[in-house]
Structure formats: C-alpha cells, structure tokens
Design a protein around this nucleic acid. Structure first.
Lengths: 151, 151
DNA sequence: TATTGTTATACTCTATAACTATA
DNA sequence: TATAGTTATAGAGTATAACAATA
C-alpha cells in the first residue's frame, strides 16, 4: 500500500468527507429536517442569498427538486422566497431567523471538531480548509461538466 | 458577524463539508452508483472489512437498508459478503477488485484538492485532517447517542 | 431563443416492524 | 435474552418531461 504523505493526506480527506456526511445526517435528524434542507441552510450560510437555480446547480439537484425543497423550507419557516429586484423570472431565497438559528445551534458542534488544534493556529487552519474546499469544489465541477476522461 | 479565527475556521469547515458532499454526488453519478454505495466504498477503504451492522451504524442507516445496500453492491460486483470466522450470525463485507478500482479512480481527483498545498506539508496536513475527522465523528456520535442538550 | 421556475408522474432508496438464526 | 441479518410494506425525496412566464 502507498504510504506516501500525499496518499495519507488523501486517506485523511476521505475520512473528513465521511465524517462530514455523518455530521449532516445527525444534524438533520436532530433538527427534524431532511439532508438536503440542512445542506441548503449551509449553502445559504456560506454563500448568502441565491436564486433557486444557483442553489439547485450547486447542491447537485434539478430545479424541480429545488422547487419542492424550498416549498418545504418555507413550510417549516426556515427560509423565504423573494423576487429578484431586476429579473422577474428569478426568485431569491433567504434564511429566516429560524433558519439562522439552525446554523447557530451547529456552531459549537463544529467548533468542537477544532478542539485539539491550538487556538493560535485556527487562523491558518481556516485558510487551509478554505483552500481545500475551493479546490475540491472546482475539481468536482470540472468532472461534472464532462471533463477529465482519466480522473 | 463574528470574524474571529475560530469562527472563520468553522465557516471553512462548513465549506469543506459541502464540497465533500458535492464530490460524493459527482463521483456517484460518474460511477453509475448511488450515494450510499460510494459512501460504503469509502468506508470500507478507510476502515477495512466490516460487518453489515457496523457499516449500517457508521453510515447512519438501518440494518435493513444495509441489507439492500450490500445486495446492490454484490449485484454490481463492487463488494462481496463472506462469513465471520467465529460468529455465525455475522456477515463481513469486502471490496472486490472492481470496488478498489473505484477508489483508484478517485485518488487523483482528491489529490488534486491538495494541489495548492506544498508537497512537503502534506504530512502535517494529513495529520490535521485526520484529527479533524476523528473529532467531528466523535462529537456527532455523542449527539446521536442523545447527549449534548445544548449542542 | 434561452432561461427561471412549476407541475405531474414514476422511480429509487430508506425506515418501520415482524421475523429467523445464532450467541 | 441479546444480537446479526432478512423480508414486506409504506413513505420521503428526486429525476424526467412537459409547461408557462420572462429575458
């Protein structure tokens, strides 16, 4: 088996992704919400208000699924639709205070995952993680777009 | 808004989790597999052969869902069941070469997410990520077990 | 013509509950 | 008695395809 530092880092990245997916499931169950609902909440938290198609594209679902998703989010008071100021085709989505409260409730949970990292290194850790997130996202978008015959 | 290094690191962690979930979707679609199938493949890659109940518990699904899941994995030649050597109630699950091939095909993809990190820092990066994965997993298990009234 | 979002229908996957076999 | 796994049934969420409204 390959034990190079890079191979080990990739294995650790696989573990992080799995742990993130487990976190998602437990959080969703605790909040009485579906997986995609809490993903949308996270997405809106990281990216701010967006249109339904943006949300659909970035969450990897169809626009029809997004319609049903936001119907559910409105029904539970997590988010609201509001019209785009200039483009009357578009509908933007915004978190309500109740939606932001879900974010707050997961804040300590995620912060606890950083416990063993000394606080004076949280700055560089954040930068590292954001770089990782951006590059993984870009690469996946490239693959989704049909590129990368040999991944 | 809180702009402390810890809050920024948590935001970055949210972005990593979302990027991991997007990676999962794109990989699954490309491999013509379901989300849970590729999660199981990742799980078996990180943890080695396991029983169905272990797999169910750690993926956050019921044992009946695990039965159906492994049925599908066997049907597509990704994994096989084999009996536990000492406990005749248990059935262990092992990746086939075809299953390991899925892992190989995602190796460069994930390694590309580490591109902007200098190679001589991959060692410490792997350690950091593994610590993060372990702590997030433990914390989620605690919450799932019913603890943490205020998350 | 292209894009944003909605609706109707069918399908996939999972949970629940009852069960068998083994420890 | 407790645990590992299976089966039958029902429900939740998504994709597909056709559509209306706006750019």
């Amino acid at each position: 088996m390959d034990e190079s530092p890079t191979a080990n880092a990739v294995r650790a990245l696989r573990a992080v992704i799995l742990a993130g997916e487990q976190y998602r499931k437990v959080l969703s169950e605790r909040m009485q919400l579906g997986i995609t609902e809490t993903q949308a909440i996270s997405y809106l938290t990281v990216n701010g208000d967006r249109g339904q198609t943006d949300l659909a594209t970035d969450l990897g679902i169809t626009t029809s699924a997004a319609t049903a998703l936001i119907d559910r989010l409105e029904a539970t008071g997590i988010a609201t639709r509001y019209p785009h100021p200039h483009d009357r085709r578009r509908t933007l989505v915004r978190l309500t205070p109740k939606g932001k409260d879900v974010v707050k409730q997961s804040q300590l949970w995620l912060a606890a995952a950083l416990n063993r990292i000394p606080e004076d290194r949280h700055g560089e850790t954040g930068e590292l993680l954001m770089t990782l997130a951006e590059d993984l996202r870009k690469r996946s978008e490239e693959v989704a777009a049909g590129g990368l015959p040999q991944i």
